[in-house]
Structure formats: C-alpha cells, structure tokens
C-alpha cells in the first residue's frame, strides 16, 4: 500500500487527476482501518485528506448550512450553529456509533463509504442535502439522492472528491420531525433499520412529506412512492395496507448477520406508521 499526503487542496486535486488504480481517501480512518485489518483493503493508494483545511468546518451562507466533508461527528454534535439552525439533524446524530468514534469519524466518510447503513444519509436525504463535488477541472453541486447508483457505488468521477455537504437553511423549519435508528443495542451499534421523516400537516392534511430509510436497500433512499401516496392525504384516510404494498416495491431488505429481512420490513412499516400517527409536536 502506498501512502500519499498532499499538502493542499490544490495538490490533492492534481494528484487524484493523475493517479490510476485503486485509491482510498483517508480522513478519520474509523472505517478504513478496520477494512485494512480485516484484509478487505489489501492494495491501492491511501490518500490522506484529514489535514486539508478547506474540507473541514461548519459554516453558513445566505441559503445553506455548509459542512466540510472531513468535519467530525463530534464537531457536528457540539456545533452552536447547527444547534440554532438544524437542531433535529444535530440531535439525531447524538447516538452515532459511540462518543469515541464521534471524535474521529467524518461526515464525508460516512457518505462516501457507501454503506447501506450509513447513519447520516437518511437524515440528509429528508433535509434535501446536496453535495459539492470538486475536481481539478470542475465544481458541481448535486442532490444527495442522485449520488448513489448501487451498493457502494456512486456517481463520483475518479478525479472527484466530496468537498462539502449543503443543507438548506430552512430545511427543518415548520416540519414535524422523526428519526429512529434500530440497532442490536443502544450504543456502538450498526443500524438494522433507520427511518427519517419530515412532515407538515395542516388541518389533518399532509401538505408536505419526506421519508428516507437506511439499511433496507443497496443504499439509503427516499421513499418516493410512499411520499406520492401520502401527499395531500387526510391522516384519517391513510390505508396502511396500501402502504405495505407500496413499501414492498420500494425496499429490498435482506437477511444477514445482523438481522432478518422480515423483521426489517415489518419494523420499517411500524416506524413509518409511528411517524405518521405521531402527534404533531414539532
């Protein structure tokens, strides 16, 4: 394995525009270290990016909250800005991994790892998060929901990296929020199921609805069909049998070491139900 440490963002982009073969961006290292230990990563280039200033930090502009890709979960949890602007997002991540991992793991790593269980992704999906991708030749901003294309696959080009995550300033405003992550224990757990939701209900009618799930497909995703079904519906008229049928089309849970597909399906359904029937408390 070859270790590369670029000095600046510019140097980093130059390096990745030229090198070929397998490469791994190394920031917090909480996941790559384990993959190396387990022999999942054997060869390739390790490109260290944790020290690059432009990739770290939380700030805001007129429309967005911007989180640099190597920002740690501890920075997120302790951020005053997020506490003011995106308290639901911040609070939901309190339970991320463990207090020790939070100090080291980064938001960009959680996304770019591509794991179906990534905790932060369902949250960002309902908050309409965007990614700023940069390379030596271009900058582009995409919606996070367009980022993934398959299991551990995404649209990132070989010379591109995630620079930052954008969340609209008003993403949580006026919404009734919901996030539940189900693991095998309360701390240090990997999600078996995660459901995040935002809804606006006026006079018992669903005016806006966003639901995203994790650990139930090849990558975390929004439940577009369920959202379509629910939009403009009166809460009384929701037919959960119908939702069950739609959900079968939208999620593809599997049985693995951590859980079973039937369990994942039923609990996902229960959580959606819990979210929809939850009294509107904001």
């Amino acid at each position: 394995m070859e270790f590369i440490k670029p000095n600046t963002l510019k140097e980093l982009l130059e390096i990745i525009s030229t090198i070929t073969g397998e490469k791994y961006y190394f920031a917090g290292g909480t996941d790559i270290n384990i993959q190396i230990k387990k022999d999942i990563i054997r060869n390739g280039k390790i490109i260290f990016i944790n020290h690059i200033k432009e990739l770290n930090g939380i700030k805001e502009d007129e429309n967005y909250i911007l989180i640099g890709s190597t920002t740690t979960f501890r920075q997120i949890i302790e951020s005053k800005l997020l506490n003011d602007k995106l308290p639901f997002f911040q609070k939901s991540l309190n339970n991320f991994a463990s207090p020790l991992i939070q100090s080291q793991a980064t938001i960009g790593g959680n996304i770019a790892n591509g794991s179906p269980t990534a905790d932060v992704v369902p949250l960002l999906l309902v908050l309409d998060g965007k990614l700023e991708l940069i390379s030596n030749s271009m900058n582009r901003t995409i919606n996070l929901k367009d980022f993934f294309t398959g299991y551990k696959k995404f649209i990132l080009k070989p010379d591109e990296i995630i620079k930052s995550i954008f969340i609209p300033q008003n993403a949580e405003n006026g919404f009734d929020t919901f996030y539940e992550k189900i693991g095998s224990r309360k701390a240090l757990s990997i999600a078996k199921i995660a459901v995040a939701g935002l809804k606006k209900v006026v006079n018992n009618e669903i005016n806006e609805i966003k639901i995203a799930v994790g650990s139930l497909n090849e990558y975390p995703r929004r439940l577009d069909l369920i959202e379509d079904y629910l939009l403009n519906k009166d809460l009384k008229d929701i037919d959960f049998k119908k939702i069950r049928i739609i959900l079968k089309e939208e999620i593809t849970p599997i049985t693995d070491l951590r859980s079973d597909k039937d369990y994942r399906f039923e609990v996902c359904l229960n959580l959606i139900k819990k979210f929809l029937l939850k009294p509107d408390s904001g």
Binding site: F3, G29, N33, I34, F48, N50, R74, I101, Q104, L188
Partner: peptide
Amino acid sequence: GEGECGACTVLMDGKPVTSCLVNACHLE
C-alpha cells in the same frame, strides 16, 4: 482493535478517541 471496546481510549486535542483507529498520519 476495532474501536468497539474503548480500552485504548486517549484524549486527542482534548477529545476522547480510540487510539486503535488513529494513525501516525493523524498526529501532526
């Protein structure tokens, strides 16, 4: 050796981390 038990906890810049998942390159 997987960041799961915390027996190797140290403070890095004042924050607790599992030292089995921190590498030399992080230390500068």
